[in-house]
């Protein structure tokens, strides 16, 4: 099944789908044409779980994320639980609450790292650089501060960053994080 994409209701994301999606062509990855875009994207529907939702987190949460990491690095006082509560409060306000038993984790992925996504409700790019999510025959770019609510039947891989770059990700999992979820 081909995944369909939409901006999550009550969210605003900059840019266009033609700019953020790539499809597998005969000569490699390319931007989708109009017909492909029409098939791949949709207006925000009622959330019946069939659609991959793109969303964005506000700058104040992104600043808070980095402040938390700095506090952790400096004094070991970074409060990830409190930060996760703030993320949950924001998503809940948007009527986009993660499952009640969701578990959140910080992932830092390097060029050799793998990220398990099978039990992932959603993923947020808290880094400053774009992150590519690869589905069967297409890719979705998550810009800084953007997130994606995944669906069960469209497995995604997080494309490792090139060279010395790191992907800085916030994963929301639907259950206890799998042992192999940590990045390389």
């Amino acid at each position: 099944m081909k995944a369909t994409f939409a901006i999550a209701p009550n969210f605003h994301c900059k840019g266009s789908w033609s700019d953020r999606l790539l499809v597998q062509g005969s000569d490699g990855w390319r931007a989708p044409n109009g017909e492909e875009l029409a098939a791949l994207t949709t207006q925000p529907p009622a959330d019946d779980g069939s659609c991959i939702f793109l969303f964005s987190v506000p700058m104040h949460l992104r600043s808070r994320f980095w402040a938390m990491l700095n506090e952790e690095a400096a004094e070991g006082q970074g409060d990830f639980i409190s930060f996760s509560d703030d993320v949950a409060a924001f998503l809940t306000f948007k009527d986009f609450a993660p499952p009640a038993d969701a578990v959140c984790e910080l992932l830092v992925q390097d060029a050799a790292g793998q990220v398990a996504t099978a039990d992932m409700w959603g993923l947020i790019n808290f880094g400053e650089e774009p992150v590519q999510l690869a589905f069967a025959d297409l890719q979705l770019r998550l810009d800084a501060g953007e997130g994606c609510r995944l669906i069960a039947n469209a497995t995604a891989d997080v494309v490792p960053p090139a060279g010395e770059e790191l992907n800085v990700l916030y994963a929301i999992r639907t259950g206890v994080a799998a042992d192999d979820a940590s990045a390389g």
Binding site: N10, H12, P58, M59, H60, L61, F90, F93, K94
Partner: peptide, 13 residues
């Protein structure tokens, strides 16, 4: 009314 966080970001920015 769906965008208090985005408005807040705008004022701070």
């Amino acid at each position: 009314l769906d965008y208090p966080d985005e408005l807040y970001d705008f004022y701070i920015e």
